[in-house]
Design a protein around this nucleic acid. Structure first.
Lengths: 137, 137
DNA sequence: CCGAATCCGACTGGATACTG
DNA sequence: CAGTATCCAGTCGGATTCGG
């Protein structure tokens, strides 16, 4: 549960450097940074959900993306998939230990986003005002 | 600096729900989840950098992506851009207050990634072994 | 050195239809 | 219900070229 921040941070820097093209953290962070993965993890942080429940809860996700996201999370051992051979079939998803450890970070990130949102919105507004027609976003 | 986790977390859940399509946090998290943004922030967490320094430090980034990433970060008020009208031109980038507050989260995320990497790698291995030819990634 | 602009292939992801 | 498969428009991002 405790994230043991100590000493591990020392290994952080070389990850983006030339001398070490890809230390394998990239693909892990990609999972975290994924648009839908975060929302799925947040939704599952409350408890076990079925496929349709997730789709209804997460606005705008297609069944294709939900399937892919869940498969990837399952592959990474963050989500456990349980199939009940009933008719109609019933499948439930729940966070594993690794998955719920991620929840705290996701929440911290969301808190940060909520906290910084006004400042960021204002920064964007003034930037766009100072640079009209500057296509970035 | 303190992230005030209290009470803010309560507003987290509705963000992905149907009743609230997009509460504006999405685009903020998109910035965090961006592949290059994270690396740029990490690199700048050490101190001020010039354009070419960043490009050399971050392996694999094209000048186009570096420019776009820096512009977006600047637009969001996370990075400050300073131009020295010398010849040849010199431009430096440095994290703002908001930017460095993000650093801690990014580090926590990187720590988590490093910590979970072995488990995730093993989970992927066993998953791929159990599901051969199952194109996901 | 620090970019902007254009081209273009590759991948993403939504819509739809179909299976068990 | 819980997926899989196919199609296809939109986007991302690398390579290249040019300018200040």
């Amino acid at each position: 549960m405790s994230l043991t921040h100590t000493e591990v941070t020392a290994e952080l820097e070389p990850c983006g450097k030339n001398e070490h093209p890809d230390c394998g953290i990239r693909d892990v962070l990609d999972r975290v940074g994924d648009k839908w993965s975060v929302l799925v993890v947040v939704e599952l942080s409350t408890g076990t959900r079925r496929f349709r429940e997730l789709q209804r809860a997460i606005d705008g996700i297609s069944q294709r993306m939900l399937t892919l996201t869940l498969r990837r999370l399952e592959r990474d051992g963050l989500v456990e998939r349980t199939v009940y051979p009933t008719i109609p079939p019933q499948v439930t998803y729940t966070l594993t230990g690794s998955g719920s450890s991620l929840t705290h970070l996701v929440r911290a990130l969301a808190d940060w986003a909520i906290e910084q949102r006004p400042a960021i919105a204002e920064a964007r507004r003034s930037y766009d005002e100072a640079n009209p027609g500057h296509t970035i976003s």
